[in-house]
Amino acid sequence: MNSKPYAKKVQVQAQINGEPVEFLCEPRQTLLEVLRESLGLTGAKEGCSNGNCGACSVLLDGVLVNACLVLAVEIQDKRVLTIEGLAPREGLHPLQEEFLRQGAVQCGFCTPGMILSAKALLDHNPHPGESEIRRWLAGNLCRCTGYEKIVRAVQAAAERLSQQEAAVEVKP
């Protein structure tokens, strides 16, 4: 037991928040552990560690995943978006702005995951109804807000995003 050999570390290359990233990890390490402990991206949170709370939600090649259920080695050659990469260099994403404006943040622990789930939804359908919003956010637990203000924030952000889109469309 004392001489138990550890599995060799693996080299992984991926794109995280638009930047090329290269790291070494043990095969047993989750994407969440590597993001948080090796890369210093602590915006994704560890809640339940088994895919039930959604606090570690990130986008993997545009698909919403729980980073606690993805092994770090699985992101080879893939794109990861975490909360740290959501906002443009200056300012905030409309989802972030509306979470602030609508009071959708209380303790803030579920917020990064919640915002990324909402982003995945709006990428998929820019005009979701309330029931679709609730369905998409059902994988993200929030114990503070009762969800009401979060739903309103996503609705408001969707509206703003589609207005922005419309503004872009009318430009020649």
């Binding site: 915006g43 949170k45 906002a87 009071g103 943040v105 803030g108 622990f109 990064p112």
Partner: peptide
Amino acid sequence: IRQDGLDKVTGRAVFGADVR
């Protein structure tokens, strides 16, 4: 808008397990 909000929507807020 609450003062701690910006750090919380950007993932910068430091929770206990984020201390390094």
